[in-house]
Amino acid sequence: MITQSIRFVERVSKMSTCAVAINDLVKAYSTGLKAIDGVTLTVNEGEIFGLIGPNGAGKTTTLRILGTLLKPTSGTVSILGHDVVEGQMAVRGLISYLPEDAGAYENLSGREYLAFMAGFYEGDAKKTVDIGVRIADLKERIDSRIKEYSKGMKRRLLIARALMTAPKLAILDEPTAGLDVMHALYVRERVKGLIKERGTTAVLSSHNLLEVEFMCDRVALIDHGRIHETGTPSELKEKYGAKNLEEVFMEVVKHAA
């Protein structure tokens, strides 16, 4: 009886700290291709969770389902207790999604873009924009047209857009892809700092495993739409006797094949 009570308390406590709960998720397309094939995982509140895997493994599809862009074929996905299908409007109020290689409206200035995006959220829009301007840290170029920005500047603006509204869950698809070392470092540190500072939860995907190791509390290795490993970077390295996540990744992919 006591054991059962303890288990119940553990389960309730686990549920209350669970930001993302994915249960037996399947996403199949009309061509018959299963992009996701029975994924189950949880992401705790305040955690930075990394999805790593080769191209076409199902990372972006998983993130798009979290972002309410795609619907699961079967299985359930909930974010802070809201189902991504039934409660998609509530979910959209809690999340911030940043696609890989996303662009911005080229004829707006950086500040106008942030103001446009802030307009969709409750609260003081001006204050939100000020936060965004600080996160982007583009100095006087924040008032230049976005079409005049470099790729790195654009990404900094988009990261600022994604985080300025203090989302409960940030979904970041390849946040530093294609950036030079300076911009990548800035984005990495800024994202980690802000997320930890505000207690935001984040799910991100990346091909840069050093980046994942630096940023993420826990990671999942996904391939052919299935999760093959989940754990903290140090747990996984220890399990596979690897020096870094790249070696873990190679081992897991080899076994999965």
Binding site: L69, Y97, R161
Partner: peptide
Amino acid sequence: EVLLTLPI
């Protein structure tokens, strides 16, 4: 893609 994930 971004627009479709906003609370609108």
